[in-house]
Design a binder for these strands. Structure first.
Length: 295
DNA sequence: CTTTTTCCCTGGACGC
DNA sequence: TGCGTCCAGGGAAAAA
């Protein structure tokens, strides 16, 4: 399931392939991809456009054309883009194909058909993204204090708040669980109850989890693949996601599995205590000493 | 405004 | 072997 690290990896691999190239022709096989627009019309509009840049914002892939138009791609759960020089392999899950002016093709495949392509006119992109997305977590202006502002007054579980793209852009179910483990924060903690020290840990945990994911070129569980077909390897580094019953890397306690906000949620019951309930609001004493005792 | 719920969509895992 | 059921989950939209 492509989250920020996966989309960033795709962007990095696709940028040199697409930049400067012209879309010779586009075929859209699945009408759902561009709904509510007509597939044939969108395909015709895309034909002839030349790529100026390939960028990313949150989980969106942004293909900027020299005309000022933008193709905004969201891979959702199972979308992927594949670049090939030969004739594209037959694939029952192919949803669209872009023929480039150098003879190569970019195929879009998507098993579950949740992904979307949206063609935007010049000037439409920025307001669209502002409406939907919060801070870019790896951007310099995303700080622990800024995170605190976004969480203030929110009673929802911290996990739900982090999954909300308007809080922070790009976190999904995997990296939220990983970040909360790194920050040693229970996924059900009310977002507004996260104190200063915890905010610092969470800020670092978010960045560390995402950066690890990018360094490993994302996590391949089933459908995600790089544009050349290679797999990411972040799934080998998961601390909690999908590891129910396995020992926590920090303390050895079996990882617990629950459901938060309708999502499968994994955490370490020892490292990520629920605490902080009604009683002791335990002011932010710098409990700097007495960290964890490894294993 | 915030939060919760439902729905979309397919295929793999599992029970019988 | 085959069928039914559950699960995976990002985000839009509607409900609360």
């Amino acid at each position: 399931m492509p989250e920020l690290p996966e989309v960033e990896t795709v962007r990095a691999k696709l940028a040199p392939v697409l930049t400067g190239r012209r879309f010779e022709s586009v075929t859209i096989d699945d009408p759902r991809l561009v709904r509510p627009y007509e597939p044939a019309e969108v395909a015709a509009e895309l034909a002839g456009e030349r790529v100026a840049a390939v960028e990313r914002r949150g989980k969106y892939l942004i293909v900027r054309f020299e005309s000022g138009r933008v193709l905004l791609i969201h891979l959702r759960m199972t979308g992927s883009l594949r670049h090939a020089n030969g004739p594209p392999a037959e694939d029952p899950h192919r949803r669209a194909v872009i023929k480039l002016d150098n003879g190569s093709d970019v195929m879009y495949r998507d098993v579950r058909r949740f992904g979307t392509w949206l063609l935007l006119e010049p000037g439409e992109l920025e307001p669209y993204l502002v409406r939907k997305l919060g801070d870019e977590p790896l951007d310099a202006l995303f700080t622990a204090a800024r995170l605190g502002e976004r969480l203030a007054g929110r009673k929802a579980p911290i996990k739900a708040a982090l999954l909300d793209q308007r809080t922070l852009a790009g976190m999904g179910n995997i990296y939220v669980d990983e970040a909360l483990w790194r920050a040693r924060i229970h996924p059900l903690r009310p977002a507004e109850s996260i104190d200063r020290n915890e905010l610092r840990r969470l800020h670092r945990g978010i960045r560390a989890a995402l950066e690890a994911g990018i360094a490993r070129q994302g996590s391949t569980l089933r459908d995600y693949a790089l544009p050349d077909g290679a797999s990411g390897s972040m799934q080998k580094e998961f601390k909690v996601y999908g590891r129910g019953g396995e020992p926590c890397d920090r303390c050895g306690t079996p990882i617990a599995k629950s459901r938060v906000g309708g999502r499968g949620t994994w955490f370490c019951p020892t490292c990520q205590p629920e605490r902080g309930q009604a009683a002791s609001s335990s002011s932010s004493r710098p409990s700097r000493s007495r960290r964890h005792s490894s294993v």
